[in-house]
Amino acid sequence: MTSGSAAAPSPWFVRPHSTGHSARIFCFPFSGSGASAFSAWPAAIDDVEICPVQFPGRENRLGHPHYDTYEKLAADLVEPLAPLLDRPFAFFGHCAGALPAYETVLRLAELGLPGPDRLFVSGQPAPHHASRDRMLTLTEPELRDEVAAFIRGRGIEPRPDMIDMGLSVLLRDHAAAAAYRRVERVAVGCPIVVLQWRDDPEVSVEDLQGWRRYADSVDIRVVEGGHYDFMEAPDELRKLLTSWR
């Protein structure tokens, strides 16, 4: 255990939390994935600690009941999150992970708890456009193919049991995504930085314009790479994620 660190306080966080950094970024994974989506990210970027969030119902929390809805996920996350809001922080959510990140910002505000200095949204249209996600239209066999292709894209030849496991998580996450309907477009009290990946064929700059209605300050940035390249924490992304400090 490194100096200035303590054991992870709850199953919601897979890394020990440090007391030696001046700020934190809480990272929300995309549908079908977990905190391991950020396993290649460093423990800190400059003086900002990286804190991947582990949703229930996957990876080391496979035996925990699924969160069911993004609103319930946000509500359940607040208690383990609250002790860690003792310094400036930001949220980063990739793809559908941006939606529970947004809902968590709203929940913190409702409870009078500190809010983030920035909400970073990566490759995800605004909440009122969430139902347009192409993945939500796919059949189960097509989703199985998507899971296999994703695993192969990470340099691993998938075994059938790996695909079965990934598909079971993805199907429950997709049920939550399909049920999500935000009719009231509630603005957050912090700037939003929206990232569009230049080589992402699924989400264009135009698809992301809806976020402009969710904060007084919304900055849409185009970054180099494809939809899943965030997983490698490229330098351009690192600089953006610490630009608020």
Rank of each mutant, 00 (worst) to 15 (best):
Asp68Leu: 11
Asp164Pro: 02
Arg107Lys: 15
Phe28His: 11
Gly155Tyr: 01
Phe13Pro: 03
Gln124Arg: 13
Met231His: 00
Gln209Ser: 12
Arg134Trp: 06
Leu99His: 10
Thr139Met: 05
Gln196Glu: 06
Val188Ala: 15
Ser33Val: 05
Asp207Arg: 00
Ala37His: 07
Ala149Glu: 13
Thr104Phe: 10
Leu195Phe: 10
Lys239Ala: 08
Pro116Asp: 12
Gly97Pro: 05
Pro29Asn: 00
Ser204Leu: 09
Pro125Glu: 05
Met231Asp: 05
Ser122Phe: 06
Val53Arg: 05
Ala75Met: 01
Pro116Lys: 10
Ala96Tyr: 08
Ala149Ile: 07
Gln209Phe: 12
Leu240Asp: 04
Ala40Pro: 01
Pro201Arg: 06
Leu195Met: 12
Tyr67Leu: 12
Asp145Pro: 02
Val48His: 02
Arg182Ile: 08
Ala149His: 02
His174Ile: 09
Ala6Trp: 04
Phe26Tyr: 03
Met231Ala: 14
Met135Gln: 13
Arg212Ala: 12
Ser3Met: 12
Arg15Gly: 11
Leu119Gln: 08
His174Ser: 03
Cys51Met: 15
His94Gln: 14
Phe55Thr: 09
Pro56His: 14
Leu138Lys: 14
Pro100Lys: 14
Ile163Lys: 01
Tyr228Lys: 01
His227Met: 02
Asp145Ala: 14
Pro234Asn: 08
Tyr180Gln: 09
His21Ala: 06
Pro83Ile: 07
Ser204Asp: 10
His66Glu: 04
Val186Cys: 10
Met162His: 06
Ile151Arg: 11
Leu136Ala: 07
Arg159His: 11
Glu157His: 07
Asp145Arg: 10
Leu119Trp: 09
Ile163Asn: 00
Ser131Met: 12
Thr2Phe: 09
Ile45Val: 15
Arg144Ala: 15
Glu71Leu: 13
Ala187Trp: 02
Val147Tyr: 08
Ile163Met: 00
Gly115Leu: 10
Glu110Ser: 13
Gly189Asp: 15
Val205Cys: 09
Leu111Gly: 03
Phe28Thr: 08
Phe26Cys: 07
Phe28Ser: 06
Ala35Arg: 04
His64Asp: 15
Ser31Val: 05
Ala74Val: 08
Leu237Thr: 13
Tyr228Gln: 07
Gly123Met: 08
Gly112Glu: 02
Gly4Tyr: 01
Phe230Asn: 05
